[in-house]
């Protein structure tokens, strides 16, 4: 099996995610974009696991899912605290720390 098409798709997903983080100003949407990037990486690893033989890549995706879940716990708690303080999750409003 050639993994090419899966890798191209993953690269596109990863790019969409990266652009999302940089362009969208809502912390929640930016965070969702990061999750999209993690899933793009999962797709790459599964595709290569199939192409190269061996289960390493497939097993790795489970680790990534658990890590992503832990990241959600920490991330949402931080975003919620910010929201309760400012009544907004816009990253533009969070600008006390400037160069």
């Amino acid at each position: 099996m050639s993994p090419d098409n899966y890798v191209y798709l993953a690269a596109i997903l990863f790019t969409i995610g990266a652009i999302g983080v940089m362009v969208r100003r809502n912390a929640l949407v930016a965070f969702m974009s990061v999750e999209l990037m993690l899933n793009a990486a999962n797709l790459v690893m599964v595709a290569f696991a199939l192409a190269r033989g061996g289960l390493d890549g497939q097993v790795a995706t489970f680790f990534v899912m658990v890590v992503a879940a832990a990241e959600v716990v920490v991330g949402l708690s931080i975003i919620i605290v910010i929201y309760r303080t400012r009544r907004s999750t816009s990253m533009d409003a969070a600008s006390l720390l400037k160069l």
């Binding site: 993994p3 890798v7 993953a10 990863f14 995610g17 990266a18 983080v21 912390a27 930016a30 965070f31 990061v34 990037m37 993690l38 793009a40 990486a41 999962n42 790459v44 690893m45 595709a47 290569f48 696991a49 192409a51 190269r52 390493d56 890549g57 790795a60 990534v64 990241e71 920490v74 991330g75 931080i78 975003i79 605290v81 910010i82 303080t85 990253m91 969070a94 600008s95 006390l96 720390l97």
Partner: peptide, 27 residues
């Protein structure tokens, strides 16, 4: 709180880069 948000968003962005690079090197 703002520092935590910035650190979290940029940190998880960098982890995502690390992970995608890792996937490609695995390939």
């Amino acid at each position: 709180q703002e520092a935590a948000l910035k650190y979290f968003l940029l940190g998880s962005l960098s982890s995502a880069f690390f992970l995608f690079g890792m996937g490609l090197i695995y390939g």
